[in-house]
């Protein structure tokens, strides 16, 4: 599905990514974990076209994402839940969902997808007329996720969905992510909360100072001594 090879990204003279390679296969839930400043968000922004790479390739099936304008990427089946949610605060919940479906014009499909999102997130249905800015952090995360699946994407990139949420909400959000995977969506999950991420993911990559330092089965990494020491506080 998603294939990244030798990706290098720099902000001026500072290089943020120093040649990372990773693969996400169809139907997988892959997580990219790492500390603050390791380059997680840089990786996601480069995939979604908000940043330009200095070298390397990013392929979504047979489409070269670096040659695709950022706003076109969603039409190829890749959606994103950005860090900090970025819901449209001055629009209602329902309007936010409509914006998620901006790239599709089939009205029937849009309505079906809204039903589908409301099925996954009943709380959004209750608040559909409310301005998104008045929602709680957890509800905003649900809205950002719901908005991302409005196009029936093949793959969803999720950036730090647990950020700023209470442990209870974090496990609620993570069970939703798992549910989305079960419904057939491939997921690349970027997380600081390594324990939670590893517990639901199939495979994982550990990012350190712009390089992949470890990779493998999520369950194995969860029990790896180095990972435990560095990320799980054990």
């Amino acid at each position: 599905m998603l294939n990244i090879k030798d990706l290098c990204v720099s902000y001026g003279a500072i290089s943020a990514l120093k040649g990372i390679s990773l693969t996400v296969n169809d139907g997988e839930l892959v997580t990219l974990i790492g500390a603050n400043g390791a380059g997680k968000t840089t990786t996601l922004h480069t995939i979604s076209g908000l940043l330009k790479a200095s070298s390397g390739t990013i392929m979504l099936d047979d489409i070269d994402l670096q040659k695709t304008p950022a706003h076109k990427i969603i039409e190829y089946g890749m959606a994103q839940v950005p860090e900090g949610r970025h819901v449209f605060a001055q629009m209602t919940v329902l309007e936010n969902l409509y914006m998620g479906a901006y790239s599709i014009s089939d009205k029937k499909k849009i309505e079906d997808n809204i039903e589908w999102v409301f099925h996954h997130f009943p709380r959004l249905k209750e608040r559909s007329k409310q301005l998104a800015g008045t929602l709680s952090g957890g509800e905003q995360q649900m809205l950002a996720t719901g908005r991302a699946i409005m196009t029936n994407p093949k793959i969803v990139l999720m950036d730090e969905p647990s950020m700023g949420l209470s442990p209870l909400l974090v496990s609620e959000i993570f069970s939703i992510i798992k549910e989305l995977q079960k419904s057939g969506i491939t997921i690349l999950l970027v997380e600081q909360n390594a324990k939670m991420a590893l517990s639901i993911a199939d495979r994982a990559y550990v990012l350190e100072n712009g390089k992949i330092s470890m990779s493998g089965n999520a369950s194995e990494l969860l029990n790896d001594e180095r990972v435990k020491k560095a990320y799980l506080g054990a």
Binding site: G49, L50, P69, E95, M99, A148
Partner: peptide, 19 residues
């Protein structure tokens, strides 16, 4: 609506597929 999105959050607007 796209105008309102761009006005509020350009980065998120791009993710929605807005040019």
């Amino acid at each position: 609506r796209a105008m309102r999105c761009v006005s509020e959050d350009k980065q998120a607007a791009v993710l929605m597929g807005i040019n």
